[in-house]
């Protein structure tokens, strides 16, 4: 074959010298490297006792957000469901009634909001699509359960604790402490 470019460089492939031909030498050389690793710092961490710190933008399980007064932010516009490439999100909208202003921030809210965590691919497009800062991906990951049905998360699983009524649980969920 003629060369197509001027940048090609042949890889080194010279035959073995007599020292390299000795099996024992190879075993000795390999063992030397292995033994040197005994004295090195352990790179593994003991999950789940120890956990590594994630980046602030880590994409874990979803959380439905509340505002500082504890009202749900979601207005059921459906952008997250449209943006979802895995079609994992479904929702039903309802209108806010008189006297519910302390529960919902906007005039329309999600009466039902479900994410199928078995379909979800954690791409983060729902978070990006949300125009109300109502859904974000937290640092929680590896959910486990016994049935498939329990992986369809409803509002009771997704909503963040109320910052007014349960400030400690809220702070924990936001990862503030």
């Amino acid at each position: 074959m003629q060369a197509l470019t001027t940048r090609a460089k042949q890889v080194q492939r010279k035959p073995l010298s007599w020292v390299e031909r000795i099996y024992l030498w190879n075993i000795f050389k390999g063992m030397l490297i292995t033994f040197s690793h005994i004295f090195k710092k352990q790179p593994t961490i003991h999950y789940p006792e120890q956990k590594r710190t994630f980046s602030p933008v880590f994409r874990g399980l979803h959380v439905l957000n509340r505002d500082e007064e504890g009202r749900e932010r979601c207005t059921a516009c459906g952008l997250c469901a449209v943006a979802c490439p895995a079609e994992a999100i479904t929702m039903e909208a309802a209108e806010r009634m008189q006297g519910e202003e302390h529960l919902y921030r906007e005039e329309k809210y999600a009466a039902k909001y479900e994410i199928n965590m078995l379909r979800c691919i954690f791409c983060g497009l729902c978070e990006e699509a949300c125009p109300k800062d109502a859904i974000y991906l937290s640092e929680t990951f590896t959910p486990s359960d016994f049935t498939r049905e329990s992986f369809i998360y409803g509002k009771e699983n997704l909503l963040i604790p109320d910052p007014v009524k349960q400030p400690e649980a809220f702070a924990k969920a936001r990862g503030l402490n």
């Binding site: 074959m1 060369a3 197509l4 470019t5 940048r7 090609a8 042949q10 890889v11 492939r13």
Partner: peptide, 27 residues
Amino acid sequence: SGVDYDVRVHNPYCSYGDFDFIIPVGK
């Protein structure tokens, strides 16, 4: 197999032309 074909060199995209590197080939 010895053919120095690399898309980064033959059809530079994403400013790969600004970089200096060689194409290792075998035989």
